[in-house]
């Protein structure tokens, strides 16, 4: 028994270590984005014809791009773009997912069947194709990108919320609320939703990681955030064009994406381990 207990403590500590590491990375990202105007050594959009594609040096710690713009400054400002795309698109996805999942789980039967069919259909469309197609028909403003990423990634959340609601809807406190005449909306928002938030928060954190990857891929392909607005993806796009002469353009922004995505993933996975009561005593 003591063995099991020690294991449980170790595993929660480990989970905490993951959460802490992830949290620190995300915090650094926030700081970089918030402090960019103060700490960035140069104007991120200032073109300088005298220092085109110069290698990392004391003047330009991470070098300059094909228009002589300082890469470090562009990356600091890019952190803000990455954060806002991540949070807004996941916010949209979470809101839609909760609404749809709650309706399915709470009303059950025909509503549930229809809604879950719709979820299956959305899951069968290659999302990246869908995003590109929508952007072809609209235009690639940052708001459209956030909306499209959000509207194509709510399915996981809706499944989670539905499953939680199915297991909650016959609990006594829900039945009691119903018997005392509370409206459906009130029961869903005040009684059931707060009790199913943990998995939603975890999946939202992991969702931000996915959204950051999609945004950077779109910007890399030249369909996402449009220059001169700096984004890690569009710096990498310049990196591809100058692959043979400017390694710094390809290495640093990609590393930033990798670390950021890893930060969100560590935070999400760590939170999952902490929240999951099955793992508290059973996990060896």
């Amino acid at each position: 028994m003591t063995d099991m207990k020690t294991y449980a403590i170790i595993s929660r500590l480990k989970a905490n270590k993951m959460t802490v590491t992830g949290g620190i990375i995300v915090l650094c990202l926030f700081l970089a984005a918030a402090l960019a105007p103060l700490i960035a050594p140069y104007d991120p959009e200032a073109v300088n014809r005298h220092s085109v594609l110069s290698a990392p040096s004391r003047a330009h710690l991470l070098g300059t791009d094909d228009l002589g713009r300082d890469v470090l400054s562009r990356m600091l400002y890019g952190a803000g773009i990455s954060l806002s795309v991540g949070f807004v698109s996941v916010g949209i996805a979470t809101a839609v997912g909760i609404a749809i999942g709650a309706a399915a789980g709470y009303y059950g039967r025909a509503v549930d069947a229809a809604v879950m069919r719709f979820v299956d259909i959305m899951l069968s469309i290659p999302t990246f194709f869908l995003i590109l197609a929508v952007i072809a028909f609209l235009d690639s403003s940052i708001w459209n990108i956030m909306a499209v990423i959000g509207l194509t990634s709510w399915m996981g959340v809706s499944r989670l919320v539905r499953a939680e609601f199915l297991s909650l809807k016959n609990r006594e406190y829900v039945l009691a609320a119903k018997a005392s005449g509370a409206s459906d909306l009130r029961i869903i928002l005040l009684h059931m939703l707060p009790n199913s938030l943990a998995p939603v928060i975890i999946s939202a954190v992991l969702g931000i990681a996915a959204a950051v990857l999609v945004e950077s891929a779109l910007s890399f392909l030249g369909i996402g955030v449009q220059p001169p607005t700096p984004s890690w993806g569009n710096i990498l796009s310049a990196g591809k064009d100058n692959l043979e002469i400017a390694w710094w353009l390809s290495v640093f922004p990609g590393l930033a994406i990798l670390i950021t995505v890893m930060g969100y993933n560590l935070l999400g996975e760590g939170l999952r381990d902490i929240f999951d009561p099955r793992l508290w005593d059973e996990r060896s």
Binding site: F220, G239, L243, V251, I257, L258, V261, M262
Partner: peptide
């Protein structure tokens, strides 16, 4: 964890740089 977080296009750039250039 690294594989999960690795942007495919960045990996492609790094490989092109290493094996190609």
């Amino acid at each position: 964890f690294i594989g999960f977080a690795m942007p495919g296009f960045w990996l492609a750039l790094l490989l092109m740089m290493f094996f190609g250039v």
